[in-house]
Design a protein around this nucleic acid. Structure first.
Length: 250
DNA sequence: TATATTTGACCACG
DNA sequence: CGTGGTCAAATATA
């Protein structure tokens, strides 16, 4: 019976993959695509991707991670800004929900270098939203940015929105080692601080960079998913270590 | 000293 | 005018 179920699932995946492929073909066929069609096509493709990702999520759930049930995969998610001060052109975007383990930074670490440039309290959100941009924006003109915000309900889930595309790949790989070295050092520092300072009631803990700050967002220096699309992509990370689900753009 | 983060101010948009 | 995104001075860290 499990076989039957997985067989059905495979069929669904095949169909969805086919549909996505057709949509891509259609996209190619429409050479000078009208603006309205562009948007629609993006939606269609996004739906296929989301459906496929959902199946992945279900598979992971079946493998047993009850934590993921907390978040509903079909929720619309919150509407993120479609247009910012300087990026009106980003008309289309997609959201994706992913669970990954916070403790394991390796999963979050693909070598990208981020620099925090702002933090903002968001109306209706319990936790502030942090704004990052690629460190090499000035030198290489890399326009990739991301936003990180804790979810209201589950503080262990982070919503990460990526925007733009990295154009500094070479530099990234090189930097990854440095990045890890820095993290190692931080870990050691934190460990020693914990050991020596457990009784200390110093109001400011030394481990701000490493662990999650109460209200703020951890200083991720890398993105967990490859950035290959112009679209904004939002991911949700939690302790669970599994994919949770995703939601469609409005 | 150089580079990264914090944080209030500023600005555009609805 | 409120909200969200960005800027930039002050501050922190190596």
């Amino acid at each position: 019976m499990e076989n039957l179920e997985s067989c059905k699932k495979d069929s669904i995946i095949i169909e969805l993959t086919r549909g996505r492929s057709y949509a891509n073909q259609l996209k190619k066929e429409l050479h000078p695509t009208p603006a309205s069609c562009v948007h629609l096509l993006e939606k269609v493709l996004s739906s296929y991707d989301n459906a496929l990702s959902l199946l992945d999520c279900m598979a992971l759930l079946r493998n047993g991670d009850p934590r993921c049930e907390g978040s509903d995969p079909d929720s619309k998610g919150q509407v993120l800004s479609k247009n910012s001060k300087k990026r009106k052109t980003l008309a289309t975007w997609s959201q994706l929900r992913v669970c990954t383990e916070i403790g394991f930074e390796s999963q979050l670490d693909d070598g990208y270098y981020w620099r925090k440039y702002g933090q903002k309290d968001i109306l209706g959100a319990k936790h502030p939203r942090a704004y990052y941009r690629c460190t090499h924006r000035g030198t290489q003109g890399c326009l990739a940015t991301k936003q990180v915000q804790r979810t209201d309900k589950d503080t262990s889930i982070f919503e990460v929105t990526y925007r733009g595309k990295h154009t500094c790949i070479q530099e990234m790989r090189k930097r990854k080692k440095e990045n890890l070295d820095i993290k190692k050092r931080r870990e050691e520092k934190e460990a020693s601080a914990r050991r020596s300072g457990q009784k200390n009631l110093t109001s400011k803990p030394e481990n701000q960079e490493m662990s999650i700050q109460d209200e703020s967002v951890p200083t991720f220096t890398s993105s967990p998913t490859p950035i290959g699309y112009e679209n904004v992509e939002t991911s949700f990370f939690s302790k669970a270590g599994n994919f949770v689900g995703m939601s469609n753009p409005p």
